[in-house]
Write a protein that binds this DNA or RNA. Structure first.
Lengths: 130, 130
DNA sequence: CCTTGACTTAGAGCGTGCTCCAAGCCTTAG
DNA sequence: CTAAGGCTTGGAGCACGCTCTAAGTCAAGG
């Protein structure tokens, strides 16, 4: 029987600069997110942050929520639920679904506004309006 | 021969409150837009603003640009071109087209982020990430 | 040993886009 | 005449989301 290789115990970790690079979230923003409780990152003996893969995933997810303009407050509520453990999953789901619906609606409005702008571009010659 | 009725000379005008109501842009914002040169609105003898239909159209258009997150600065540049007369139409068109491209790109990113969130919603049970 | 450079912290500062305030003027109703 | 209500102005204030500063620590390279 072939020995099963030991599962990686020491997970790879990343510095704040590496995470900034990987995720496109600035180091400043990462520290800010930690301060306001969106992230809880471990430290080396030196005090420097070490982001686990899990932490990086969370940053990516936060990035997506921000990219869809979810207010920081709501993201805080979301992660407060996550911290609250498995009993909060229904509520988390509801929160994400509500956000999803909001964004879909915004998308529709955006499309509509963009179409109007496109029309204006198409029949250009008009000087300013509708 | 039937007499052709005189064309309406006195165009209908609107108060700031009416325009706010019609366009969804607050009266505060309308005054702000005027202050920063996006709008130039006539006055009654009393000093009260009177918005013409043309003005209202412009407000609607500004609303659309804002709805698509065009920065105020760029909207200012646009209307500076409009004020510059017919010689600036190519430049205006270019500005709108550039904005259009930007928004389309943002739309794509937004869709992508939203899809990722949807996936998370779909296989909910995950505690926080990608 | 010293420098370089990435990191740490608390806290201040900033850009955007409104939003609100205070003081005052007009108009209309009672 | 008076009071209410909507408007005017310049300027201050605000919410959001970072972004930057200052002062200091730490590790590695020359």
């Amino acid at each position: 029987m072939v020995a099963v290789s030991t599962i990686a115990i020491e997970e790879q970790t990343f510095t704040i600069a590496e995470v900034a690079e990987k995720t496109g979230v600035s180091a400043h923003a990462l520290r800010y997110y930690e301060r306001i409780g969106l992230l809880e990152v471990g430290r080396q003996a030196s005090g420097h942050r070490r982001f686990t893969g899990h932490d990086v995933d969370r940053v990516v997810f936060i990035g997506r929520l921000r990219a869809t303009a979810m207010p920081i407050r709501e993201i805080q509520r979301y992660f407060a639920l996550v911290a609250g453990g498995p009993g909060t999953e229904d509520e988390r789901l509801a929160l994400l679904q509500a956000h999803h619906a909001t964004v879909r609606a915004q998308l529709r409005d955006l499309e509509a506004a963009l179409d109007a702008i496109e029309h204006k571009i198409a029949r250009y010659g008009g000087s300013c309006s509708p």
